[in-house]
Amino acid sequence: MNMTTMVPFVKWAGGKRQMLEQLGIRMPETYGGYYEPFVGGGALVLSLAPEKAVLNDINQELVHTYREIRDHLDALLVLLSSMDTVTCTKEFYYEMRERYNEKHRLAEYDTEMAALFIYLNKHCFNGLYRVNTRGEFNVPWNQKLSVRSMDMENIKAISAYLKSVTITCRDFEKALEDVKKGDFVYFDSPYAPLNPTSFDSYTKEGFTEEEHRRLAELFRRLTDQGVYCMLTNHNTELIRELYEGFLIEEIDVRRAINSDPKKRKGKEVIIRNYGEQIQHS
Rank of each mutant, 00 (worst) to 15 (best):
F9R: 03
W12L: 04
G14Q: 03
T30F: 10
E36P: 04
G41M: 03
G42H: 01
L44W: 12
L46W: 03
L48Q: 13
P50E: 12
K52W: 11
A53F: 07
N56P: 05
E61N: 12
T65A: 15
R70A: 09
H72L: 04
H72N: 15
H72W: 01
L77N: 00
M83L: 11
T85S: 10
V86G: 02
V86I: 15
C88Y: 06
K90G: 15
M96Y: 08
R99G: 04
R99M: 07
E108C: 11
Y109R: 07
M113F: 08
I118F: 01
Y119G: 00
H123A: 05
N132Y: 12
T133M: 10
G135E: 08
W141Y: 09
N142M: 06
D151G: 04
S159D: 06
K163M: 14
L176F: 10
E177M: 05
V179C: 05
V185P: 01
F187A: 05
P190I: 02
N195S: 07
F207P: 01
R220W: 09
R220M: 10
C229H: 08
L238K: 05
L242A: 07
E244R: 15
E244I: 09
G245C: 08
I251W: 06
I257K: 03
P261W: 13
R264D: 14
V269P: 06
